[in-house]
Design a protein around this nucleic acid. Structure first.
Length: 645
RNA sequence: GCCGACGUGGCUCAGUUGGCAGAGCAGCGCACUCGUAAUGCGCAGGUCAUCGGUUCGACUCCGAUCGUCGGCUCCA
């Protein structure tokens, strides 16, 4: 007999051989019907498994958070089973769950890409209807090898060897004619798998290495209910609508095609207003926060990049050019330029912390397949800053940077998540600089965050080779995370360039250096903004803030007067007095996502008023001209500068 | 770079088994002077991504190149 306890703290004795299903049944028939698996002392098991030992047990149903992953994993098997039926020669790789879904990597002879997805889908539906059970079997290595080698499952054999090497139990799951090497757990049968969708097909290297053969990866997702699946599919639709590449064309913000070269952004007049407005706030905020703005060239002799280490570590991503007296490279980063500025004169401890910053456009060669709209380009503007300081200034400088970064996220209502990336102590060879320096600084970064009361995730081994870093991921309106601000310590470059300051003791000391970017790449950040706001920028960024629309040409003079007042008030305003219907012109401003419109007809002209219309809201009433202009000015006010320490 | 899909006027898309390239929107012109998301008529605009091949004849079939998209990879 073994003793198990339940979440409500009750407990009971059960005999050996009792399965999870028996336990669920003993509670209620309804529970047994809904049950997907059970958890014993934090470990998940199939419902059909015997309770292996005493402990605290929980029956997992669709109501439990972790259960959707079980459904997805089982659906991956279901998909594999369907693929095997259709393509008997298929060899299987791995089929894990991922955020929001699953995939399976397979070598599928005869598969015709997306065209054949529908067939797989309908075959899966058929298997669901048959309500086939998942059968688990454990077996010794030799028997498993026999089973997989008879089907020439070369990928599974590889996995099998690794499981054996780690000394883990080998378990196989059979679903109909398909048997897979798998840890489990799985749902009892396919009746739990009716709410899935196959989403896309892609190539993927076996085990993610370019050295290996490329397999076909099919992506899908699954949920407990039709409603959950539908709302996820709706989210994907919504994301498509917000795609910054699409909106960029529609709103005439930027162009990145044609002769301009892939991965290069050409900002159109409207996009330039967005970019400049953002950059202007950035510049003012930086000066206010004690940064000195600088400007450095786009190209420099290779010797500079040799000294900085970029030639060794970053060569493959750099553009080079030859001129008569030597080789030059386009800058892939701004740091060496800022170092030249630091080294321009002998620095005193009294100058520290010295914060310099630049909206520096850099060029990096990205492989053609990596390029993506504004998010991944070959030329972009880094809102780069470098802080030179002493060790006892580190904490407050880091805190200032993090606070400053959060300011930029908060003014746009982005959510965020902080990650602290540290070195892997088991692999010190991998990192530049004195390990003692690392040991001194890493806790300071953690302390800086702790003292601010910010939550963060520590990721060991994720530090850059030159130093530990704090990354902030931003979360947009659809809940998606993007690379955002980054704060990086550098134990490499100060040594390479022999950066020093003269201390109060009259001696030279090595200066500490922090790289930081708050927006990351201005281009990518604007891409995030476009998707976050669906192109409905806050007023201060809107390319056109106000459109004046006279109903007929009789009101043109009056409209002209209103227009001048708005322009004088500093608004980006347009007067649309084209000979089109008022409905048509309103529609154009609406689809152009102009935040405000003033509509002026006979009534307004006679009473020195305007009818105000707000994007997405429609007519909001009539106001005297000056009041209406002031309301738009207020709505388009730039956010306040950040608070200073 | 790799796997797969795609590439027809500024945009969105038709184009049957190879037989003279089509529509809507946008643009231009004319008329219309209009009350809160599309007024009407007319005009112009494409060497069907590029190059090569097969064919009497190629937007259509084949190959290569370039680009775009979904992934992989990369991401100091």
């Amino acid at each position: 007999m073994i003793r198990i306890s339940f979440p409500d703290n009750s407990s009971r004795e059960i005999s050996k051989g009792t399965t999870g299903r028996d336990v669920a049944l003993s509670i209620s028939k309804g529970l047994a019907k809904k049950a997907l698996a059970f958890e014993l002392d934090g470990e998940l098991f199939d419902l059909s498994c015997e309770i292996p030992h005493g402990g605290s047990i929980r029956v997992i149903t669709a109501d439990d958070e972790e259960s959707v992953d079980i459904v997805r994993h089982s659906t991956a098997h279901l998909m594999a089973a369907a693929v095997l039926e259709l393509y008997p020669e298929t060899k299987f790789g791995i089929g894990p769950t991922i955020e929001n879904g699953f995939y399976y990597d397979m070598f599928i002879p005869g598969f015709n890409g997306e065209k054949d997805i529908a067939a797989v889908r309908s075959r899966m539906k058929r298997l669901v209807k048959k309500n086939i059970s998942f059968e688990r079997a454990e077996m010794p290595y030799s028997q498993a090898v026999e089973s997989f080698s008879s089907h020439d499952e070369r990928f599974k054999m590889e996995l099998l060897d690794e499981i054996e090497d780690r000394g883990e139990t080998i378990s196989l799951y059979t679903l109909g004619d398909f048997t897979d090497l798998c840890r489990g757990p799985h749902v009892p049968s396919t009746r739990f798998l009716s709410n899935f969708e196959l989403l896309s097909v892609a190539g993927a290297y076996w085990r993610g290495s370019e050295e290996n053969e490329m397999l076909t990866r099919i992506y899908g997702t699954a949920f407990h209910s039709r409603e959950d699946l539908q709302s996820h599919l709706n989210l994907l639709e919504e994301a498509k609508k917000r795609d910054h590449r699409k909106l960029g064309v529609e709103l005439e913000l930027f162009s990145s095609k044609g002769m301009g070269g892939p991965g290069f952004v050409y900002w159109l007049p409207k996009g330039t207003i967005v970019k400049e407005s953002l950059e202007n706030l950035w510049k003012d905020a930086h000066r206010y926060m004690g940064y000195q703005l600088v400007s450095t060239p786009h190209i420099a002799p290779v010797e500079l990049w040799k000294t900085s280490g970029h030639l060794d570590y970053y060569r493959d991503n750099m553009y080079f050019t030859e001129v008569e007296n030597g080789e030059y490279a386009l800058k892939p980063m701004n740091c060496p330029g800022h170092i030249i500025i630091y080294r321009n004169s002998k620095r005193s401890y009294k100058e520290l912390p010295m914060r310099i910053a630049e909206l520096g456009t850099v060029y990096r060669y990205e492989r053609s397949g990596a390029i993506h709209g504004l998010m991944r380009v070959r030329g972009f503007t880094v809102d780069d800053g470098h802080i030179f300081c002493t060790s006892d200034q580190i904490i407050s400088e880091i805190q200032d940077v993090v606070r400053f970064a959060l300011y930029f996220l908060k003014i746009f209502n982005f959510g965020y998540q902080i990650e602290l990336s540290l070195m892997d102590p088991a692999d010190p060879e991998h990192y530049a600089g004195d390990p003692a320096d690392w040991a001194r600084v890493e806790p300071l970064l953690a302390k800086a965050l702790d003292d601010m009361g910010e939550d963060y995730k520590t990721v060991t081994g994720e530090a850059a080779f030159y130093g530990p870093k704090i990354d902030i991921k931003l979360r947009d309106a659809l809940g998606r995370y993007w690379q955002g601000p980054t704060v990086q310590f550098d134990f490499n470059i100060p040594g390479r360039f022999d950066l020093k300051y003269i201390g109060a003791d009259g001696a030279a000391h090595r200066v500490y250096m922090v790289h930081r970017a708050l927006l990351g790449s201005v281009e990518r950040f604007i891409g995030n903004l476009i998707e976050h706001f669906t192109g409905n920028f806050p007023g201060w960024l809107a390319p056109v803030q106000l459109v004046i629309l006279p109903i007929t040409s009789v009101q043109n003079d009056f409209a002209e007067r209103v227009y001048k007042k708005a322009v004088d008030a500093g608004l980006r305003c347009e007067l649309d007095n084209r000979s089109e219907t008022i409905g048509y012109r309103i529609r154009e401003s609406e689809t152009g996502k102009v935040p405000h419109m003033f509509i002026v007809g006979e009534r307004e002209a006679g009473s020195e008023t305007v009818a105000v219309r707000r994007h997405g809201e429609g007519d909001i009433g009539t106001l005297p001209i000056d009041e209406a202009v002031q309301a738009v000015v207020d709505a388009c006010a730039r956010p306040a500068l950040p608070e200073r320490r």
